[in-house]
Nucleic acid binder design. Structure first.
Lengths: 140, 140
DNA sequence: CACACTATAACGATGCGTGAGAGTGG
DNA sequence: TCCACTCTCACGCATCGTTATAGTGT
């Protein structure tokens, strides 16, 4: 029997996953996915789709493409499911901590920017229609 | 009277602000700061320090260097304080919304990754010492 | 002489965007 | 003939890190 009718051209893949052709070719160059060829044209298999799905998830989690590649390689080796999953979980825990750190920094930065913004607008309000601007120029 | 003794060489600046020489030179190439010269060597003025401080704050808030440059230019023009501050506040509000969006996405991603991680570790626990791994391989 | 500090130049990494120019199928 | 889709270069962007190589001052 022939290939299970999941040989998708690049345009269709892009529509399916909301990415550009450039992105898919880029991932291929980085050896994250390996579509088969019909002459020059790429045809994406079921396997490609599964991997792309994992790739996009990984990116949402902030993994770099290189980290993702390593995770995908783990799946490919697949010596022992346990080894692979253990490693994946380790990386996930690290990522999680990094993300929580980022979130905290971001939250702090948001609070600070809010404060400054409030002060800025307070100054603006009192200056609009007021006298000569005092000395606020030690900045530049 | 001579310059108010704030002519700092690059190494000292780097120590003060926790950046690398490369970074300062890069900012100079991008016209964000303009140290004076003693022959070849750069000497950073009080003005440079003030601007660098703003730059680093801006970066913590996620402004791009280009946005920061425009904000610094606004300060330099300084036609009317009001005009300038108004613009700055506008940009800050935009940034703030972007940051809150980021934070929300990040929060969601963290929650999702936590879930997956929990499930992964649950699977690991039940497999460690169990029978043959079922079919979990439709992934790759 | 050595050692610390500085300088320029230029390539590398990340994750693609954005053409240019050409081919292929309907 | 034309349109839509695809292909392969290959440069550009942002933000520096990282050598490599050389000069200068103490």
């Amino acid at each position: 029997m022939p290939v299970p009718q999941s040989l998708t051209p690049i345009g269709t893949m892009c529509a399916e996953f909301g990415v550009t052709p450039r992105t898919l070719r880029f991932y291929e160059a980085k050896e994250l996915i390996a579509p088969v060829r019909d002459g020059q044209r790429r045809l994406y298999t079921r396997r490609c789709r599964a991997r792309l799905k994992l790739i996009l998830q990984g990116r949402r989690f902030g993994f770099s493409l290189e980290e993702i590649r390593q995770l995908l390689d783990l799946y490919d080796i697949g010596d022992q499911q346990v080894t692979q999953m253990t490693r994946t979980c380790e990386l996930a825990r690290e990522r999680l901590r990094a993300m929580e750190g980022q979130r905290d920094e971001l939250t702090a930065a948001i609070a600070e920017l809010k404060e400054r913004l409030a002060e800025g607008e307070r100054l603006l309000a009192e200056r609009r229609g007021a006298a000569a601007p005092a000395t606020v120029r030690e900045l530049t």
